[in-house]
């Protein structure tokens, strides 16, 4: 089944995405959320920001009406440039205006806790 080969975009906060992050590697599939700070129609490069951190997103494959100041979520693969900066090659994007980013961070923390608890529970069963 072709769709089964599509990797899941790991939930990452922009603040966590520095060069020391385990997600900061060539081809890593991630999902990021942030406010659109800049957008160039010529290059289709968008800059999203959250909590003081920013990330460049290549939106050339998306059919999305991007507005500066709105919140967006992108899923795609990270490409590390020669200057060690990451750019997300987005394959999915959506507007998430109205989303409470603080609540999102809290729920992400709970989700990670749940997932690690479940995985350790599973290991104990084996």
């Amino acid at each position: 089944m072709a769709s089964a080969s599509i990797p899941s975009g790991a939930l990452v906060l922009l603040q966590e995405l520095d060069s020391s992050s385990s997600h900061f590697k060539q081809g890593a599939s991630i999902r990021v959320t942030g406010k659109l700070q800049e957008y160039s129609v010529e290059t289709a490069i968008a800059i999203v920001a959250d909590g003081g951190a920013t990330l460049a997103v290549d939106t050339q494959h998306l059919r999305l009406n991007l507005r500066v100041g709105s919140l967006y979520q992108f899923i795609g693969e990270l490409s590390i440039q020669p200057n060690n900066e990451g750019i997300l090659k987005a394959r999915v994007g959506r507007n998430v205006d109205g989303m409470d980013l603080n609540l999102y961070q809290q729920s992400l923390k709970l989700l990670r806790q749940f997932q690690s608890d479940q995985i350790s529970h599973l290991e104990n069963l084996q």
Binding site: S3, A4, I6, S8, R31, V92, R94
Partner: peptide
């Protein structure tokens, strides 16, 4: 989750993928 793929065969089926950040469900 978020729909990340879509394969539509009219009058037959729609195959799609849901990505919730922990994995993908066909």
């Amino acid at each position: 989750g978020i729909v990340t793929s879509r394969d539509h065969k009219p009058d037959r089926f729609l195959q799609f993928t849901i990505d919730d950040g922990t994995g993908c469900i066909p």
